[in-house]
Each structure stands twice: as structure tokens, then as C-alpha cells.
Design a protein around this nucleic acid. Sequence first.
DNA 1: ACCGCCGGGTGCC
DNA 2: ACCGCCGGGTGCC
Length: 863
Amino acid sequence: MAGEEDIARITGGDTDPNLEETYMLGFIIANIVGTRHYSGRISGRQNVGLVREPLNRYDSNAIKVLNTRHHQVGNIERSVAAVLAPLIDDNSIKIEGIVPNNKKGGNFYKIPCQIHVFASGLEMDRVYNEIVDGGLQLIRTDEMGIGVSEAAVVKEGVVDDGKRLDEVFKGVEEVGKLEVMEAPREVVKSELFLHQKEGLGWLVGREREGVLPPFWVEKSDGLFVNEVTKFETRQRPEAMCGGIFADDMGMGKTLTLLSLIALDKFGSVDSGVCSGRNAGSSVVDKGCEESNVFGGKKSNLFGGKNTKKRKGGKMVDNVKKKQKGKGGLKSEGLSVDNVVDYVISRSTLVVCPPSVFSTWITQLEEHTNPGKLKVYLYYGDRTNDPMELTKYDLVLTTYNTLGSEDSSESPAFRVNWLRVILDEAHIIKNGNAQQTRAVNKLNAKRRWVVTGTPIQNGTMDLFSLMVFLRYQPFANKSYWNTLVQRPIDIGDKIGLSRLQAIVSTISLRRTKDRDLTGLPEKIMEICYIDLSAEERELYERMEGEAKSVVQDYITANRVTSNYTTVLSIILRLRQICTDVALCPTDLFASLSTGNIEDLTNNPELLTKMVAMLEDGEDFDCPICISTPTNIVITRCAHIYCKSCILKTLKCAKPCCPLCRHELSESDLFFPPPEVSNVTEVPSSSKSTKVSALLKLLSISRDQDPARKSVVFSQFRKMLILLEEPLKKAGFKILRLDGSMNAKKRAQVIKDFDVPGPDGPTVLLASLKASGTGVNLTVASRVYLLEPWWNPAVEKQAMDRVHRIGQTKEVRIVRIIARNSIEERILELQEKKKRMASEAFDRKGGLKDQREIKIEDIRTMISL
DNA sequence: ACCGCCGGGTGCC
DNA sequence: ACCGCCGGGTGCC
């Protein structure tokens, strides 16, 4: 659709060969200005869309800022836009925006925004110079210690992409309990199989109106929050009707879909399908208006004026849109069509390859009573009247028919279908822009993608899929790039796991042979966490120490004789990743403040700072986009983390990233103790990892209160530390550790068998505590708090749960601190696995897997 | 009076 | 909008 092209064009698009390998060059902090003039609001930390407006009448360099709902928030301040716009326009860079949490920090007229700048590897220097020469302060991410490792994996990530995309559906199979739904027997004369009834129930459920779309939650105060974008609104978001139906081939998808279509006509009164339909046009059309932000033509046409007659699918509207001039409209994402007539229809359009026509026809003949469903085969040339198409319950057409037509002429595009189904959608090959564009032009609230093969690379690309499904905010190119594409490109695993989450919430995929294997599936997941700023600071210092100590030993060739010292330093690093409380308390006693004054002698600044902090609202350091640690205020009254601003001042012409005033270390001030105390009090007693675990467990409990989980840690103290917060969160827990005698252990395991939610649902276990015979198959979730040094030990832990007798799908979640020794331990695990298979072939060459070599130590502390 | 300074008008792009 | 910036009014102390 127009909007998609618009953004693609504006940000350089994905297919531009010059930008195939882009790196994050760094970021600029710029103000969003003019917020008074627009309705779009921003609350909390949020990604924003940055869209070029070459035809802005005041400034051809203009870059507008959109919030998650595509409402304009403002513009990027002129001076910054002036530098960036030419680089964007000649495809030298792509940009993405993120706004820090700033409920009260900035003033009302402008909002700071981090603009992330991406450029191809070859262009980095040129682009860097142009930005800096343009007077902007480009904060290099590598200087902040974020970018280096990302850059290093770029190549690998890209090469690997296709294979890894195959895994998209890995997370889908946990279907949980599906509601069974019967097909209307007036139409469907065959009895459906159980899985088909479940499939039908799922389809109906996904078309239900009034259900919040994925990732939206309703807060108690009537506020709706999108968990991905943090966008908040009081207006209830429209349901997302449809999804991806990806059962294996031969499971009867077509019949299930026919049953769904039959329900349109013969559904029981109380079924969810009907509520949407009976509520009539207002519901459906409002949905169109809301969800199709870029499809301006539709929202313009239907907005608020569809109380007209509508019986039997009559013509409803005939509004002429003024053509404001081609370019102008395009840049606004509007259609350039002169006149568009829409016909409201209650029929379903099925788009499929010609070979699948016969499947539909055969299924109709075999399983439905004759004459109950009226079908029309549409090749595009038999009628020019959209009304004709609405007379049928089912219109079958092909991708080629749609792709080769002129959309403004074709009646298929002038019908507002009840439902559009893309059958065997994988035949739309990646890059088939014509067909992709055509299907995206189809109008329907209910949109389905049906495929018998897993979504993978080479299929209609996933972004187009999001666009087709109107799956906001992922159907917006900039959000898609920020949230999914970019992380995948740079090899960040969060990209793939997000993708899995995004896809799985709207997908149903069941395989024919899933009951043939003895054991239910075991799904491995990694939950990455980012250490809090405090933890990070401790970690960095510890790692610095580790590096220098180990380096000294290495140069002195005395590593082996100091093995325990080295291992204990590594142990500390690992402990910090899990919970700083695991370390001896005196370890980090000394805290140097450097030579930054406090504010006691600077009353005006003090007043400002107090004013900002007093309002109590948390706000983010605009550099690291998280709650500031060691708060520092600049002479120009902007607030940062001490370490963030110090790093950015290490450039050629140091200035404040927010207002670009010249700045040196002597312009930085600490708040006086009593002020800083106010903000430091809420510093968490729970570690980041513990909080993450709690969250995961709560989510799991919400899904299934009876579900049982086992949490493994190798630190006994950790198991004990977990008890309080878990109990506080309402979990019934048990602990199994090495200090218990055999009898006690057996009792714990027996107690764990009592079914939840009345029985215990979480078992805190240390690996050593239990012999190989322990059976924990009552649980179906495993959380590994730390990566185990030896992968075989991890496997052992999982096998306690995933073993004969397990009837449920098992999900194994490893909680890993990003950019830490833990990530490197994962790498080493992979290496070990490879080596293990090699060592096995080479007889006699079996090396001790437990041995930690100097090289491994170097890897772990990235020396 | 080709400056400095004052204070009112003003406010995205 | 408690700022910055612009441009007109003004002009010793």
C-alpha cells in the first residue's frame, strides 16, 4: 500500500544494494519541535517513526515524527533535519528514532529524541564527517561500548538469516487448549476431525471483535498500553481479525476454512463471529478507519458517514476525493485515485494458485450440501461490476489475476470483503512486488494467510505479511526495522525471538506427526536481559580488573599457578550477572566520585535540578535511554548519567547532546546528597535477572495457573535469595538443594507432584542436589538462571523435566545477561558441542570437557 | 549609532 | 515561553 512504499522510499528501502549491510554509526540527540501543533502524544519510552517530508512547504528538509499510532508528534528540529535530510535522500543513511522516558524532564514544547543513524560499511567515514561537519554531535555507539560486538557479527548474521528464519514457527506450536467449535451442519455435512474443530474454534476466536490486538493490555484505570511500543491510549484499540493458519499439509485446512465461511451464513447466534457482523458496518468500518492508517482512501471514505442503507450489500458511498497533486498526496501516504467506490460485501475472497481451485471445489462438493454456499470463480475479465462479486458467499481468484490487473479498474479492489484469505500464500515469492502490492490493496477487516509450509525466507517476505495482516505496529516499516529487521541483521537474537513472539501470537501451526514422536516437543529459548546501570557499572569494573589480572598472569606465564584466583574473578563476574547480592558485600566498597563538584554552591542549578527530580516522574538519561545512575546535571541544566556524559565529552568538540552548548567536565555537577537520595532510594533490591524471572513466571502463571516450573541455579545462595520475592509474588515454592539428605530430597520431589495451582508450582533446584533418577515431569517449564559451563550439565537439567512420562510441551528458558560473560559462555558452549563431536571420532583424543583453557578464559573476559 | 543595550513580540517545519 | 531569538527603539551619568 501507499504508506509502505512511502516509507520505504523515504528511508531508502530494503532492496537498495548500497545499504545491504548497514551498521549503526551512532546516534544524535535532537529535539522534536512543534509538538503543540499536532495531536500525536508520546508517553514513556517509545520508538517513533521518522518520515521525510520533502514537500513540506516551510522546509524541504523536514522530517516528521510519528508515534506508534502514526499520529504526528512534531518535527525534528530544523538544524538537525538540514544535515540529515540530504543523507537520507541520497540513501546514504537510514534513521530510526527512540524517545526516552521523559514524563516531566523536558519542557512541553520540545521532546528530546535519539536518532539512530545507520550507514553502509563503506560509507561510514564519509557520512560521519558530513554529520559532524554539519555541526551535529554524533555519539558513537562503539564509544559507549555497545556497537563493537554488533558490528562483528553483521556478516555472520546476514549469511545465517535464511536458515534462522526457518525457526520462526518454533514458538508457535504451543497452542494450549483450543476451543472446539462445530461446523454448521446445514452446510457442512461431514463431521470434522477434532483438530479441525479446534482449528475452527481458533479461527473464530481470532476473528472476534472487541478483543485487544496482540501485545495490548488493559490497565485497571481504563488505559490501554502496547507492551511493545509502550504506547498508551484511552481509546480501545481495534481487534486484529485474522492471522496465519499454517497447519501442515493434508490436515484439512480448506475444509476448516469452508466451515468458517459457512458460519458467516449459518452460524449460531451466540458465536463470536456474529457479534462482529451483526454489530454491522459501524464496527467493521471503524476498524478499517483505525487500522489502515496509511490507506487514506478508505478511512476518508468511510469515516463517520456510513449510516446509509446497506442491506444485502448495497453500494454505500461514492465520495470524490480531491487530488491535491500527485507528489503531495504520496508523501502523505494517500492514494492518488481520483474516485473510489466501495461495495460492502459479506462474501469471502479466496486468493490462491490455480492448482488449488480444484481443492476448494472438491472440498465443497464432498463436504457441503449442494447450493448452500455460492461460489464464483473470478479471473478478472468476466465482470467489471463489483456488485456482481457480492452475490456469492465465496469468490475464488488467483494471485496472477489480481497481480496483473489495474487496481483502480478491477472490481475485486472495489469490494470491502467480509474476509480475504490468501491460500498457499507462500507461493507469493519474496520480491514479487506486483502480487504483494495487489493483495495489500484488498479491503477486508478479516485477513488470513494460509500456508502449509512454515514461513521461511523466500516466502512472501515477513514485512509484507505484517502489512497484509495490518498487524500494527509491525506493519510500519520503521517499527519493523527497529524491532525486528535490524536486530536480525546485526545478529542480535532479540530480533528472532521478537519475530517468533509476533508471529506466534497470531498463528496456528500443527504438524501431522506431532503425536508420533514419543516425547512432546522441547523448545529452547533464550531470554536476554540488560543489566541495570548499577549492575553494569559493577560488572564493567570487575571485568576491567579481571582483564588486567589475567593479562598479568598470562604475560608472566603463571596462569596455571593462579588458577583459583582467575576462576574466582570469573565467578564474581558470573555472580554479578545473576545477582550482585551473591558477591561478598565488601567487594565494591570504594566508590570514587572523580572531580565533579556537587551543587551546594550553585543555587540556581540546584533549584532546577530539584524541580526536575521532585516531580517524581522517572525520566531517562537521553544517552543510554534508561534511568540515570550517578545523576549529573550540566551547566545548561540537562541531566545525564555521569558515565554517559563523560564518554560523550571525549570527542573533538565536547558539547551537551541536548542543546549543543559547549561543555567540559567542569560544567558537570552532582546533585547534593539529599536530592540524589530521593532518586536512589527505589534502586532495586531485586536484581535484573530476578525481576526477569519473576516476570516470566507470572506470564506463565497467567497462561496456566496450574503449570509447574523448575528454576535451576548453580548458586545455592541464589535459590535462597529467590524464595522471598517468589513467595511475595504469590508462588507456592519448594527448594531442592545439595544440603538436603536423600530422604528430604525425596520428600520435596513428592510434594512437588501435588497438582497446581493448589500445590507448589515452582521448584527451586540446584543441579548437584539431585541424582540422575529424579523425575520432574510434572513441570513443563525450565528456567536456567545461568549458563552452565558444560553444556552436558545443562542437558542433564533439562532432561529431568523432558523425559519419558512428560505429556506436555516443554519450554526451556535460559536467562542470559546481554553483553556479559554469559553470552561468551554460550559461545563457548557451542564450541564445546562442536568439539565434542569431533573428539568422539578421534579415538583416544578425548579431552576432558570440564577443563577450562586459557583461551577460554580470554574469550570469557573478552581479552 | 556601521555599535551595545533594553524590552516587547514571539514561538515547528 | 520562568527560555532564545528577532528586530525596533534608543542612546552620558
